[in-house]
Design a protein around this nucleic acid. Structure first.
Lengths: 233, 233
DNA sequence: CCGGTCAAGTGGCTCAGCCACTAGGCCACC
DNA sequence: GGTGGCCTAGTGGCTGAGCCACTTGACCGG
């Protein structure tokens, strides 16, 4: 079998940049939230044009591994730039019921505490998250970012660092369920309504109402995700 | 809740281009294998720079929806530019065992027929696929393209349009299993060895040996894949 | 302490252009 | 006849320079 004239395998430049970036994040020990070097610096270091670096970053962006803030730098979303293999994804889905049970327990209590302890500033944060979610949906989005901030704000308003820590350990998996759940047809707007109910209960300082509204919300998400086909509402 | 000063939601230009491209493919009724307009033309039509069009195309490229040939144009891989939702992906995995059974039945027979009927030119095609796969692996890749071409070449060499049609209907799902299977550690090189055995049997015109080598190969793939999949329900 | 201004840093996007590769047509030579 | 060389147009790959928009933080005056 002649080796010399074997078919060529070409590769795009941005793919090589991608490889280098992954390696860099690993070697430099970067983790979620850390800032990547500026595009111009990366281009200079790698000896390629900024356009090629840009293409690589766009890829990472659509894969949800990186977040580019206009004028503010590019930041890591996770601790690595590796895409999750389907095997792990499926594995994680099997653990999802547990995560959602835990989420229900935690967030219900968090909503209750938030209703009792929130300051006006924290209430405003929650409201702003709600408004953002509304804006996202109005523009045809899914309201993912607004959803995320809403729950983060409620967690902050509960003033329980221990519960907050627990939430942090399942945050990644909640993110996944959020992304997928909100893509269900009609989900975003109904989700927005549930969030509004939670907000109003917290604003009114009604702890019981806040807890039950949050429980209903989390259970809805769980139902949708598990494809158990129990119609909502 | 004041509507006017709600938080802004920004969007990247390439995302809008992406949207337009998806819409265009739908409206123009393009299907797999069709050629997209040239980047320059797209940029001019959409009124954006070529760099932005490029970023959108890169996204489609990494999502496997499009194939850009240097100097030769950009072509659709599927009939649509929509990415497959996770729900569908999981659903499809449930059907995978059946697909692999069908694949075993079909490909075993195809290998047998290929050993008996292949012309020298077709044998050469098979060999070239093997060499490509080897090259890909040597360069650190998974040999996905070589694998694909190998099976396509064997199918062609069998001279059975009916079996070929059957293969076509499960081609998409086989592609998925190939991509995932070949990412297992050590899989590419072992897969290459199995392919080589199949090739040699076909070259020698040994139908029984070709069939059994192919059966062994397909079963290996099935095992790898099924190990990671425990049905949830 | 508050608010405003300013400059540096950085991502978003464009423009113009060169290079490399593909595909198809043409033609001379065997 | 067809094989190989050659040319040309079309197209993707990549670069470099540059402008704009946004973020951030420092500084300053009230």
């Amino acid at each position: 079998m002649s080796e010399a004239l074997r078919p060529m395998v070409k590769s795009r430049l941005y793919e090589q940049v991608l490889e280098r970036l992954r390696a860099y994040v690993g070697e430099a020990g970067l983790s979620a939230g850390d800032k990547l070097p500026a595009e111009r610096d990366l281009a200079a270091s790698l000896g390629v044009s900024r356009a090629s670096v840009k293409q690589a970053i766009v890829v990472l962006e659509v894969q949800g591994l990186v977040e580019a803030r206009h004028g503010g730098g590019t930041y890591l979303v996770r601790d690595t730039l590796d895409v999750e293999p389907v095997e792990q994804l499926v594995e994680r889905r099997k653990r999802l019921p547990e995560v959602l049970e835990a989420r229900e327990a935690l967030e219900t209590k968090l909503a209750e505490l938030a209703a009792e302890r929130r300051t006006d500033a924290e209430l405003e944060d929650i409201r702003r998250a709600l408004v953002l979610m509304e804006a996202e949906i109005a523009e045809g989005g899914f309201g993912v970012e607004g959803d995320r901030r809403f729950h983060a704000a409620v967690t902050a308003a509960a003033h329980s660092s221990l519960l907050a820590d627990f939430m942090k350990t399942i945050a990644g998996q909640i993110t996944e369920s959020r992304n997928e759940s909100l893509r269900q047809p009609g989900r975003p707007s109904r989700s927005l309504a549930q969030h509004t109910a939670i907000y109003e209960a917290i604003a009114a300082g009604d702890a019981r109402k806040a807890a039950s509204a949050m429980r209903k919300h989390v259970r809805t998400v769980a139902k949708v995700r598990l494809l158990t086909w129990v119609p909502e509402d």
